[in-house]
Design a protein around this nucleic acid. Structure first.
Length: 580
RNA sequence: GGUCCCGUAGAUCAGUUUGGAGUGAUCGCCACCCUGUCAAGGUGGAGGCCGCGGGUUCAAAUCCCGUCGGGACCGCCA
């Protein structure tokens, strides 16, 4: 049907008779004797010169045959890859007429996203989406190659599975053959990949669709794709090696440059220095420990378990009073009692000192120590929060991001392994700990004895779980799994999960482990997130062909929608009318 | 469950703070003119439940309440 792609024709093709197919991108008509039609396919646009009149309108699909010729002198378009040539069209075939597009096809106008999604098939024709989807395909194929070269075997796991009570909210599918029973869609292939290890697959991977019925965000959709991997007879270091390899291959394939080895940070360091477990290390402004300075202070606001601060370079001038007030409000919303802010100014002796309302409560020594600890100079603004350690970390961590975070496409790619996560998040109401990851996560080898301590001391127990972070986004996480039933039993006991309950919730996995489970460890990372960050997109919807809106709707297909009475009947379902 | 921002022509926006005659602009669309344009140019034209509902008022795109839709975030996402 065609001999060439529009965007590939160059002066080397001059004299050839070619046929191209595509959409009418733009036309410039000069009466009935001459018209320029830019024909577009995914490779680019090509100027076709039509001698005579044809009714070719925007987005008509056409096939054109003609001879490639150089453009007349002075009419070369240097902005166009094909700008040195044009096609002297001999015949035009209109393959499909088209209504005017629902939004401008140029790349300059930023169109409302609902309208883009409602007409996604048109939106996909644009450069941005073409680039994004093609890059995504490169990410997928690069991952497959990297995993297979490392001996991983792709195994597909089921989409219709049993609901397990832990974790995110399940999407659920009613059973027709057994009305009143339901399948769940997988939140991840977690349990199946562990079964693969018991099954001697040795090294499993899958580019897996995961589904979680939780609220959507810029980096979260109901359905998303993960590289899911698990390997037998490996430790944490082995996992880092094979995941780093896959990620580095992807970065090299997309960005052209292979990243350096990913640095590591412990979870507790990350919390102390950045205030969260997914630090954005593209910029500084680290949280600085000030607790010791205020030990025995007279300033009541700083009499707290923990005092930390951050310093915004140049903040004394760059922040207006309104902006500061709004930051204080933000911090209160994040749980702080308040936010102490002080401008750093030069005093009469040209020494840096603090100048603002709160500063007058500080002793000279305290002011000086704060300035030194924060490495502040005149013109800077310092922010201090005093409270419990957890809250100080959280509030200053969020303030740091609000004040300093670069745009998504600035600051390069800063990968980071976060290691030594705690095994437990907190203590529940009944005093039993709540697992931070899932209950099959292996205890850190150095912390085995601490399991016996009980109570608050359990919160210091580390696990062999780890996250991969890129520019402040959690790309993925993994862990070494428990493969010994004695340790697993101990963990269940600690979690307050009785033998019966464990049997009911995870029986099939525990059964499997009785038949010879190899030590194993694994990881999973989000392909949508990685692709978006590599493309400088701040929203994963831009790298998904047919995404859903924040409310979980699809403006294109109008999903979700009601079922008719017959379907409900067959499934044994009755819809409860919405309360009004 | 919560906080904040947005909703005016097919698209992108102005007008809303401080209510006042007929809601404008640009692009696109339609018709005509035009033989070297490339975001072509020219002339003319069509196109609006100002998201929806209620309230205040002599009078509402504008103020108030509610609601729907979109977005960002907190909670949530083992």
């Amino acid at each position: 049907m065609r001999t060439d792609m529009c965007g590939r024709l160059t002066t080397a093709d001059i004299g050839r008779t070619i046929t191209v197919c595509g959409w009418v991108d733009r036309r410039r008509e000069h009466g009935e004797h001459l018209a320029f039609v830019d024909l577009r396919d995914h490779t680019g646009v090509l100027q076709c010169v039509i001698d005579g009149s044809r009714d070719l309108r925007s987005e008509y699909v056409a096939r054109m045959t003609g001879v490639v010729r150089p453009r007349p002198e002075g009419t070369v378009n240097p902005d166009l890859a094909t700008g040195e040539v044009e096609v002297d069209v001999a015949s035009v075939e209109i393959l499909s007429q088209a209504e005017p597009p629902p939004f401008p096809m140029d790349e300059r106008t930023s169109v409302d996203e609902t309208i883009r999604l409602r007409h996604r098939y048109v939106d996909l024709r644009k450069n941005r989406m073409q680039r994004n989807l093609r890059t995504r395909a490169v990410v997928n194929s690069t991952i497959r190659r990297a995993m297979e070269e490392q001996g991983f075997v792709e195994v597909e796991t089921p989409m219709l599975i049993a609901s397990t009570p832990e974790g995110a909210r399940d999407f659920v599918v009613p059973s027709r053959k057994e009305p009143g029973s339901f399948y769940a869609l997988p939140q991840s292939p977690q349990l199946f990949k562990q079964l693969c290890m018991v099954g001697g697959i040795d090294r499993y991977y899958q580019i897996a669709r995961c589904l979680r019925d939780e609220d959507l965000r810029a980096d979260r959709q109901f359905e998303f794709m993960q590289l899911d991997a698990e390997a037998s007879f490996v430790n944490q270091e082995d996992v880092f090696e094979f995941i780093s390899r896959a990620v580095a291959d992807v970065v090299e394939a997309v960005a052209g440059e292979r990243p350096a080895e990913f640095p590591r940070i412990s979870w507790s360091d990350s919390m102390e220095r950045f205030g969260n477990d997914k630090p954005d290390t593209r910029f500084g402004m680290e949280l600085v420990e000030l607790t010791a300075i205020f030990e025995g202070t007279g300033a009541r606001v700083f009499q707290a378990d923990c005092v930390k601060g951050i310093c915004l370079a140049g903040g004394a001038e760059s922040l207006s009073r309104n902006q500061i007030d709004s930051l204080v409000e933000d911090c209160k919303r994040w749980g702080a009692k308040g936010l102490a802010w002080m401008r750093v100014v030069a005093d009469d002796n040209a020494t840096a000192t603090l100048d603002a309302g709160v500063a007058k409560f500080l002793s000279v020594e305290e002011s000086a120590a704060v300035i030194e600890a924060l490495d502040a100079v005149p013109g800077d603004m310092v922010f201090l929060v005093a409270d419990t350690r957890r809250l100080v970390q959280r509030v200053l961590g969020m303030l740091r991001l609000a004040l300093g975070r670069p745009a998504v496409d600035e600051g390069g790619l800063k990968f980071l392994w976060v290691v030594d996560f705690p095994l437990f998040d907190a203590l529940g109401e009944d005093g039993s700990p709540i697992p931070a990851h899932h209950p099959f996560t292996m205890v850190h080898p150095d912390d085995m004895e601490k399991l016996d301590a009980g109570g608050e001391a359990l919160l210091d127990v580390r696990s062999q779980s780890y996250d991969l972070v890129l520019n402040g986004w959690e790309l993925g996480s993994g862990s070494v799994r428990i493969h010994r039933s004695d340790i697993q039993g101990r963990i269940f006991e600690l979690l307050g999960i009785g033998a019966e309950e464990a049997r009911a919730k995870f029986g099939f996995l525990l059964d499997a482990f009785r038949f010879g489970a190899p030590p194993h460890a694994g990881f999973a990372f989000g392909i949508d997130r990685l692709t978006a960050l590599l493309l400088g997109e701040e929203n994963i919807r831009e790298v998904i062909a047919f995404p859903k809106t924040q409310s979980g709707a699809d403006p294109l297909t109008n999903a979700p929608g009601p079922l008719d009475a017959g379907q409900l009947e067959e499934l044994g379902l009755r819809v409860i009318p919405r309360a009004t």
